[in-house]
């Protein structure tokens, strides 16, 4: 199995490297960091924020205050909500492209096991999402320093970095569900539908106070998107995320292994 996995990881890494997905998702993260920095810049000067009108009001709602804890919190929320879209897109591409490019049949009857191929895709997806989150943290640190945000301390930086990375990891885990959707749906479109549906449901359920029971809403709640008072989601929230991640991975492997592949 280890040999199979190494072979599959090598093949998948080559496919990922040659695609536009790494560039597009990295660009999305850079944009997210820049937008966050812009909000911080606006919030630093109340007069400027008022002059910007509506945009200033939105920045106040999303980011809170122009300091390091505020910027980290905004970054964590960005990873939780925007990350679901970006990481989800990467997962959908990893699996859905095999059907859209009609290359899936080339993976089905080779000595490398289908489970190894699925695992390689999931591991690469997870690694790439982790790298994107690290990129966001690095950009937050650089841009926050350039803006001269107040409230820096080693403890704040460690807590903030941990929150962003933790949120990123949970969100990356949830992205596995879109890999399953792209496999069962045999292409991009059904999975994109599932992605939008889960993002929408996460917003609605979080708004009515039941977000902790819907795993796709949990990272945003943990990141404080619904307010600091709602960040405590108990053990059920993260447990649900882990369950979705592992369950999706297992179901994806099982589907590739057991389903009739006639398309």
């Amino acid at each position: 199995m280890a040999g199979d996995l190494a072979a599959a990881v090598h093949a998948e890494a080559l496919k990922l490297r040659r695609s536009r997905v790494p560039w597009a998702t990295a660009a999305a993260m850079v944009l997210a960091a820049l937008v966050g920095a812009f909000f911080m810049f606006v919030l630093q000067d109340v007069g400027r924020a008022r002059a910007l009108g509506l945009l200033g009001a939105k920045a106040q709602l999303a980011g809170g205050t122009a300091d390091w804890p505020g910027y980290f919190s905004l970054a964590a929320q960005t990873v939780a909500v925007g990350g679901l879209l970006v990481f989800g897109t990467a997962a959908i591409w990893l699996f859905g492209r095999e059907f859209s490019d009609r290359t899936a049949t080339d993976l089905l009857a080779v000595p490398t096991s289908r489970t190894a191929v699925v695992l390689a895709k999931l591991l690469l997806g997870l690694a790439w999402c982790a790298l994107l989150t690290v990129l966001l943290v690095a950009l937050v640190l650089v841009l926050g320093a350039l803006l001269g945000l107040p409230g820096w301390s080693a403890a704040t930086a460690a807590r903030g970095t941990g929150t962003v990375l933790g949120t990123g990891l949970l969100t990356a885990g949830l992205a596995a569900s879109y890999g399953l959707a792209a496999s069962v749906g045999r292409g991009y479109l059904p999975a994109v539908g599932v992605l939008f549906l889960t993002v929408l449901l996460a917003q609605v359920l979080a708004a009515v106070g039941h977000g902790e029971w819907f795993p796709w809403a949990v990272p945003a709640l943990l990141a404080g998107a619904a307010g600091p008072g709602r960040a405590d989601v108990g053990w059920a929230g993260p447990a649900g995320v882990v369950l979705v991640a592992l369950g999706s991975a297992a179901a994806t492997a099982l589907w590739w292994e057991r389903a009739d592949h006639s398309a």
Binding site: A7, H10, L14, R18, R102, D106, V117
Partner: peptide, 26 residues
């Protein structure tokens, strides 16, 4: 085998497509 359409990873070169196949075929 070759079933269905003659598909290939469009962003990979001919050599890279064969390299992917070589890896997966062990």
């Amino acid at each position: 085998y070759l079933v269905a359409a003659a598909a290939a990873y469009p962003e990979l070169t001919v050599r890279e497509n064969l390299e992917v196949a070589r890896r997966l075929r062990r």
